[in-house]
Simulated assay, not measured.
Amino acid sequence: MLLGCCLLLFQAEAQKMQTLTYFRNDTLKLDLDLFLPEKASNTGFPLLLFVHGGGFSGGERQQGHSICKYLSQHGYAAATISYTLYMKGRKFSCDGVLSEKIQAFRYAVNDLWLATDFFLSNSQKYNIDVSRIFISGSSAGAETVLHAAYWNRDLMQIYGLKLPENFKYAGLVSGAGAIMDLNLITKNNLIPMMLFHGNGDSTVPYATAAHHYCPTDATGWLMLFGSYSIYNHVKELNGTVSLFTFCGGGHEYSGTLFEKDQQLILGFMDDVLAGKKFGAHNIIPTGKKNEKSAAYSFCD
């Protein structure tokens, strides 16, 4: 009897997640895992979309299960997506090809736009409030969400998809992310952002530097503006942004807040939906020191 009881509890727990195909054509099938709150909502659930890391060549959507489960327990719908791993079998390092690096960003961004369109088209079926869609990701996923929010969708689209012209994400959460051009972020398209990053990151720059800190003669040289540069730019625009700096931390901190201290992400989303404005820089000691982090006096 006890075994049967436990089996029923397991089945009830498992039913909270649905695996759905959000895009399919002749050559491509893309899935997502959707977590919905148990309690119904009269106004529709706010939604978080999560994009995993892995250098655009690896990783899996299950990396987002922890944050998605947590948010679904606090009134949010949350989905973690699979996307095109364009760099699989290609070099994403300094000796790679720049145009291929950019194409990797572009495919991932377009897949996130497809996932967004899936929920815009199926908002009633899953009870989603389309005015409250957040995007989030770690490492390559963070680079994806930053470009998804600020790239010109007409210019950078691949599949012929057009999201509504006036559509804007409610906010984004970026773990160790960066953007190719700060000028993409303007007063007109600015959305609330939560950024976290180790200032000793040698993969994705915390401030402004080349990807992997490649030398300027490298075939894969790509300038990136990381979390600290984005934070300062948004502050100049009088935007809503918070930055969590892991002093001395490397790229291993790219998923930290999605896996631990998840209440900080929940708090950010709650504050955004409540219309609160903020601009805090939060310094988090790690006990680590390295050459890159030594450049920032606020960690002394």
Rank of each mutant, 00 (worst) to 15 (best):
A14R: 03
L36A: 10
F225H: 15
Q157W: 07
A12S: 04
R132G: 05
T216W: 12
A170V: 00
S41E: 08
Y206G: 01
H233G: 08
D271Q: 09
D129H: 10
H212F: 02
W151L: 02
F258S: 01
L222M: 12
T219L: 08
A115S: 03
Q263R: 09
N232A: 10
P37C: 10
F298C: 07
K277T: 15
C94G: 10
F246N: 05
L114H: 09
L7C: 06
P215W: 05
L47P: 03
P37R: 06
A218I: 08
F298T: 10
G239W: 13
V109R: 06
L161P: 06
S136F: 08
T116M: 12
G160E: 09
S82G: 07
Y22K: 14
I128R: 11
K168F: 06
L182W: 04
I67R: 12
R153D: 00
S123G: 15
G175I: 00
D217G: 04
T256A: 07
H52R: 01
G89N: 02
V130S: 11
N122A: 13
D117W: 04
K125I: 14
Y22P: 00
T219Y: 14
Y22F: 11
I135E: 01
A274H: 09
N42H: 15
F92N: 08
C247M: 14
H281Y: 09
F50T: 01
F134S: 03
V241D: 12
C5H: 09
N183M: 13
L114G: 08
L112W: 00
S297V: 14
G220D: 12
I185M: 08
H281D: 15
F268W: 08
E252H: 09
N232G: 12
F278M: 15
T84C: 06
L9W: 06
L85G: 03
S123Y: 13
D271A: 15
T219N: 10
S293C: 07
G175W: 01
F35N: 14
N166T: 13
S138G: 04
T186I: 10
Q18D: 03
P285L: 15
L190H: 13
K88D: 07
G175H: 03
H212E: 04
V173D: 00
Y86W: 05
T43Q: 09
Y83M: 02
E236N: 14
A140N: 01
G200A: 04
E60F: 12
K292A: 07
T286Q: 06
C6Y: 09
N199V: 02
G200H: 06
D271S: 15
W113R: 06
T84M: 05
L7A: 07
R24G: 11
H212K: 04
A294N: 11
A14T: 00
L30G: 11
S174L: 00
G64H: 13
L8C: 00
F268A: 03
D129C: 09
E100M: 07
E100A: 08
Q62I: 13
D26K: 15
V173G: 02
W113Q: 01
S131D: 11
I128N: 04
K69W: 10
L32T: 11
A115L: 04
P285D: 09
